[in-house]
Amino acid sequence: MPTDASILTLKNVRYRWSGRASFELAVPNFSVKSGETVLLLGESGSGKSTLLSLICGTITAHHGVVDVAGTNISALSPRRRDQFRAEHIGLIFQQFNLLPYATVLDNILLPLRFAKARRERVPAPNDTARQLCEDLGLPNDAMNASAGTLSVGQQQRVAAARALIGDPPLIIADEPTSALDAATQTTFLELLFEQSRKHNTTLLMVSHDARLADQFDRVVKMADIAQQQREAL
C-alpha cells in the first residue's frame, strides 16, 4: 500500500555527460512513495539510463539532491554509495541479468554478499531463495543449474528473486519484460507485483511500452519529469 513517506526523491538534479557529444539531464522534481508501483515511460535516448544510474549511485549528480530511503546518496563516498545500493535497491535488467556460469542459487544470493543488513534479514538464505523461486514459479531443480542454461523467461524470474531477497525497500526494473513474449510478459509482471506487495517493497519500472500502464499505481512520462539538452561540440 502506498504511504505518504517517499522512498525516492530527486530535487533540482542536474547531470552532465561530458564527451564528444555532451548532454545534460535535468530532473527538477520527481518522487516515489513507499509501497507504490510506478511505471516510468520513455523512449530510448530519453535519459532513462542516466536517471537510473543516478538513483543507483553509479554516477552522481553535479547539482541537486538524490534521496533514497532518507539518505542523500550524492553526498556519500563512492564506497558507501556501492554499499548503499547493495542494501537498499534490488535491480532487474532487460536481459543478461545473471552470471551465466554460476548456479541459480549463487546468482540469487549474490547481492547478500555485499549487503550486511540485507544478509542479516535472511537467516536461512538457501531456504529463502528456494521459497522465492517457488513463489516465482521456477522449477525446483533449477536451483543448482547454471543460470545460463535457463530460458530467458526463467532467467528474468531468477533476476526478480535476486532483487527481492533480503527485502530491499526499492526495486528498480529496467525494461524487464521487453525480451519476453506477450504471454510470458503478463505472467512475469503479475508475479513481480504479487511479490513486491508481499515483500512490501516499492517498484519503479522503466519501459517504453505504454500497454503495461493500467497495472501500475501511477504512470510517469519521462518527458514530464526530465529535460535534456544535447549539444554537439
Binding site: T58, R79, D82, Q83, A86, L110, R113, F114
Partner: peptide, 16 residues
C-alpha cells in the same frame, strides 16, 4: 563487461 556490470549493480565495489 556485462559480468562486471552485474557485480556493480549488486553493489560490488570496483575493488571487488
Amino acid at each position: 563487461r556485462r559480468e562486471m556490470a552485474i557485480y556493480r549493480a549488486m553493489g560490488a565495489r570496483p575493488r571487488v
